[in-house]
Structures are given as structure tokens and as C-alpha cells.
Design a binder for these strands. Sequence first.
DNA 1: CCAATACATTGAACTAGGACAAGAAATAAA
DNA 2: TTTATTTCTTGTCCTAGTTCAATGTATTGG
Lengths: 193, 193
Amino acid sequence: MHSQINTNIGRYVSFDTNELAIFNSLMEFKAVPKKTILLHEGEMCNFEAFVIKGCVRKYYIDANGFEVILQFAIENAWISDISFSIYEKNPSRVYIETIEDCEFFMFNPETKEELFSKAPKFERAFRILMQRSLAVTQERLFNTISKTATEKYIEFLEHYPALPQRVAQHYIASYLGISAEFLSKIRTKMAKH
Amino acid sequence: MHSQINTNIGRYVSFDTNELAIFNSLMEFKAVPKKTILLHEGEMCNFEAFVIKGCVRKYYIDANGFEVILQFAIENAWISDISFSIYEKNPSRVYIETIEDCEFFMFNPETKEELFSKAPKFERAFRILMQRSLAVTQERLFNTISKTATEKYIEFLEHYPALPQRVAQHYIASYLGISAEFLSKIRTKMAKH
DNA sequence: CCAATACATTGAACTAGGACAAGAAATAAA
DNA sequence: TTTATTTCTTGTCCTAGTTCAATGTATTGG
């Protein structure tokens, strides 16, 4: 049951069975149906969720009412708005919503603190997770600025080969920062190579 | 001498005098003249630098040879390419270069490890720094995708009011992801409000 | 099973911003 | 100071991507 998440958390820092037992005892399992909004704009994000199964999106709504998807999270990824909410004590500006029926392991601020106090090595593991998120976001920023829409889409396909079969195309367009119509045109052009 | 950085590191986690003494003893002070490249693409980034004085930029070079500035760091900010280099053990894809004569306090991977082993609470402080960087980068990604060039420039002025006096205008354009010429046109338009 | 809704495609007209070029200002260097 | 180099501005033309609208195609749900 815990093997997926234990592999994930142990990827950059190794833990003994005792530490993993503490970790596993503090997480909460949660099954959530699709199209459930886990975090609304204006709320505090009080969870950090590991996706066991399913697909989630995190998005803003911009000044013109358009959704801009910041992140997709599928199996074995973490999703939260920790960067804004938990430590800054600001209400979040993003939504987090399930796209498919999902299963999660979740931490809340209290269980996470308890984890750190009982097994401080996890502090390091979460720091490294944070670094990885930063690296991914920075890469994404670079692509957004310096690649054409077609290049972005090709890069997306390489990075998330399974997603086009799982999520609506206009979500992908929103993630890439282009209009749904233009993505459609890119795809037809690519099809007749 | 250490008050700037001690205020910075103690902003989200408080440290006692002993812990700060360890911290201060492990950093290396470094003065660097302007236009010095601290990190070249393809190298490993082996430092984390706190800017005491001066201004630094971090940038990629894209497929067409254009520089894209990812970050400016001025007084009291941290700069590194930690996200890619240190833990991922990959060579960096970015350059880090001083724009003005600079003074830094620097950690390298060894002194940072020594810090964490002598005073583990710093692990948490660095995790929170990382979260803040992630928050800033995410905000920047959102702006890049969903604001017009003019809006981005106004937002930039609010966020970094002192920078236009300190760095070349085409650097700001590069940071905003627009051409230098277009930024110039935006500015003339704004001048005749 | 049909109706309703959400999703995808295509085309035509439009626009924000880019590329290029050439000159003006400012900084630096000598 | 004079010259050289870098930076900034302005204009013209051009294109990647948007917007809007119409049509078609899947999904969903009652």
C-alpha cells in the first residue's frame, strides 16, 4: 500500500524502516471523485497531497476570467499550493481540482510538523522535493518565454506522453499558454507532417 | 557585518546566538567586480550566494542565441542554480553574472552540509527559502502567460522599483520576455500617458 | 436512447509584439 | 576631448497567435 510513496520520498534521502513507519502512520488516505475542487481561490491550502492514482490540475483564473493551468499532477507526483499558503499565511490564488477519480496520501500542517519533530530527516526530503518543483517551474518559465507554440507542444508531449489521452485538449492549451483553437491548428498541421 | 544575512535567514525560523555563530563562521565572504561570470552553462553550480551589495543576473541562452533573464538578485537576495546543479548532479544550463561590483556571503555544498549537521534547524530555513523562490517563480510564470507586455512592465516596476536605475533597459526586456524595442515603445507610450 | 452539454476543428479577420534598419544619446575608454 | 562602444528610440513591415463564429463530433446524463 505504501510502496509508491515510500519509493518517492526515499528517492533523494534514504530512510530506515522506523522512519518510514512514522511517515506512513501520519499520512491520511483519501479517495476523491473527479471534478472535485480541493482548494478554492481565497482559501488557505492546508494539505500536501501525493497522487497514488488519478490526475489533478492546479490553475489560476486571470484578470479576463481565463483559466491558466500551472501544473498537472498524475501518479507519484505531489500537489499543493504550499508555496503561497502554508508558510506565507496568505490565502491562495489558485484552484486545485481533480480531473479523474483520485486517490491521495495527504499531510496537513499539523501532521507534517509532527513528522518533522519525530523524524527530522524528512525536513531534508521535503526541501529536495521543493527544489525539484522549483527546477520544473523554472524550466517551464524558460520554455514559455523562448519557445514557439509548436515547440512547446512537442516538448509537452515528450514530457507528459500519457496526458493527451487523459485530459481535454483545451486543458493542454491552457497549460501551454496558447488558445485551444491554435493548439488544434498545430495538431492538424503536425498530423500531415 | 553579518546583520543583513542574519536577519534574512532568521525571517521564518528563529535561531539562537550559538546557531548564528556556526552559520556566520561557515560562510565565505567574497567581493566580485562587475561583469564577472560566476557560473557558466555546462558547469556545476557549487555555491549559494547571498547578495550583501550589488546586482546579479541569472540567464539562459535560448536556441536562437538570445539571452533570457530568469532572475535579478540585489541586496538581501539569494542567488544560485541549486535547483538544477547541486542535487540533480546535472551541469547547469544557466549563467550567473554580476551586473555591478558585488559583495557576497557564499556557501558551497560542503559548508552547507557542515551547517546542517552542526545546526539542523537550518535545513528548515533553507526549505522555506526554496518555497519562497518557488512562489516567486510561479507568480512570474503566471504573469508571463497571462499579462500583456505593458502589464508585465508595470508589475515589474512595482516589484523592483529601484532596478530600472541600475540595469540596462534591454535586460529588463529580456526578463519580461519581450523585445528591447517593444519595451522602448511601451515606455514612450506610458510617458505621454 | 435521445438530448444536452462539453469538446474539437476550421476559416476569416485582426492585433500584439517581433525583426530589421538606421539614427540619436549616453557611457566608457583612450 | 575625441572616439568607440553600448544603449535607447522610432519607423516600417511582417508573422505568430488571438478572437469570433460556425460546424461537427464526442460524452454525459436523465
